[in-house]
Design a protein around this nucleic acid. Sequence first.
DNA 1: TTGAAAGCGCTAACAT
DNA 2: ATGTTAGCGCTTTCAA
Lengths: 350, 350
Amino acid sequence: MLKKLSIADIARELNISKTTISFIVNKRAEEKRISPGLVKRVEAYIKEVGYKPNPIAKSLRTGKTNIIGLMVENIADPFFSAVARHIENKAYQSGYKILYCSTDNNTDKTKELLEMFRERNVDGCIIAPPVGVEQEISSLLASGMPVVFFDRHLEGIQTDQVEVNNYESTFEATRLLIAEKYKNIGFITFASSQTQMQGRLEGYRAAVSEAGLKEFILEINFDPDERLIIDPIVDFIKKHPKMDAVLFSAIQAGTNGLKAFQKLGTRVPEDLAVIAFDDCDLFELYNPSITAIYQPIDKIAEATIDLLLKRLHKKAVAGDFKKVVIPTGFTLRHSSKPVAVRKKTVNKKG
Amino acid sequence: MLKKLSIADIARELNISKTTISFIVNKRAEEKRISPGLVKRVEAYIKEVGYKPNPIAKSLRTGKTNIIGLMVENIADPFFSAVARHIENKAYQSGYKILYCSTDNNTDKTKELLEMFRERNVDGCIIAPPVGVEQEISSLLASGMPVVFFDRHLEGIQTDQVEVNNYESTFEATRLLIAEKYKNIGFITFASSQTQMQGRLEGYRAAVSEAGLKEFILEINFDPDERLIIDPIVDFIKKHPKMDAVLFSAIQAGTNGLKAFQKLGTRVPEDLAVIAFDDCDLFELYNPSITAIYQPIDKIAEATIDLLLKRLHKKAVAGDFKKVVIPTGFTLRHSSKPVAVRKKTVNKKG
DNA sequence: TTGAAAGCGCTAACAT
DNA sequence: ATGTTAGCGCTTTCAA
């Protein structure tokens, strides 16, 4: 392994200046009116010896890194990792690499991470922001850093953003349960002031209120330890025996909700009809299958990275921010309507 | 937003040299015997104005980037994203950031990505390698880049690696099915010459052969389009009506296998007993619950990043590579043993 | 049409 | 105990 060649080595070898080579390498030969002969000779030599400009030196000089900072709540979350995958694809196609990090919705950690993005000179950021970092994001924005929010936004901050129609999704889902004659519809969610969670909560509340029904809301403090999610759900269900349907606000609520049902022997939809926000294989294969609101992850990711790339390529007007709203989809399955003929369940016999 | 301060600004302001400041900032004041008074004055000023050294300039000078390259098959895969999460935690604790990318098991793409890691001067790489990039990895290693393999390795390449005991896992799982008196045990896997998949296949074959039973093997060409996984499974099951048990070699085989069962109306374990490699909520909540071999992802990730950090901190002896084998766990559920008293299933009535 | 040279911000060998 | 200075490899202004 020989030492990597620098532009100076090439210049010396070819007996021409670094400047000329730099122009050729950066495809500015024509603009700089370098003779085609020279261009050919240099390009041939570069290919022959496999010269690649050092991106770090380039960054130091230009201030550009060709790196995008991606900040999600948790990269292990299937939603965020799927978004990351799509973003990665598009970013690499445009020559950008991705530095990722997880916030855990921790404000202090997020602030550090934002500071890191600034120090590292990432060219732009894609962020699913926790509340409480408004000031830091504003400062980042003020310093000229392009920032695109996705999944949620921060009140009072003007920047590009991509979201699904959270309010409408739960509003319609709740109305569907109401149309099926459910009278006591619960909403199981996480305690969060994030905009997307607020939107989902408000959609539910509006539909229930419109129908003159009573609210049953459980707000769980999110914890990676799933027992701390399952147990409150168990308690909530026990506490409200009249509840005949439930809407889960997020995937972790839905899957842990099913685990709670298992503990309690709750029958779906006989004891409790169910609709879940976010879809997954489990909901398709569960018996009975679970009706779900799904987020078109590919569309969300693509809109997000497109917005950022437009900024990076200066195709977007400074100060003119876009808000893209992606509609969710709905997968109607068996958990959300009463069974006409009630079947005997095997569970009770076992 | 003022321009960021450089070490030169501080030097001018404090009327001392850049060198001194550099030593102080890099905690080498004592070693360089800088007077405590000065150290204090400088540190106070630095804190006051919030000076942070520019990591890019530092990288250019030192050749170190404090960036780790993480290369997985697909960051959207729950296994890999969970590994990524754990690695991220540990890496950030040690001051390293992570650049990630997905190979899709595509050789050409992987080669480009490896080249990118080299160009970008990442300090070390964590790689789940596809076959076919032996030469490129060797060259990377030869140039002094620390590389840790995980999930699988590449034949003939000496480097640190972390894996689970694939062979033993499927060997024991198959023996378990044999002990339950299953006679025609199938193995549903993906066509792959990767070491981990080969290990799982061989474990199955050894156990079947030991018991003098017949092999039933389905090798599917992996495709992100799940229909192209489900359909072959459906065909395979139809083609082998005598098959009474099946072992899935990976999560995508298992989940799509259940979808195939759904299409066919296959009853578990009455028609087909099941054990799956990799565990997930679906297997826990499916009816009947699915027995699974699980990979301790936290342990895998920790062993991997530890190995790399040891290299980066020069705590590992050059040329002395470690191979860490993490034992899988086994979650015995209801899909892997005959039901003593056959229950009538509700499915058939509905 | 091409080249010389300054400088991005930092580190470290070499003074003093 | 602290300072001078030469780069790391690149881009770009200015000059020729």
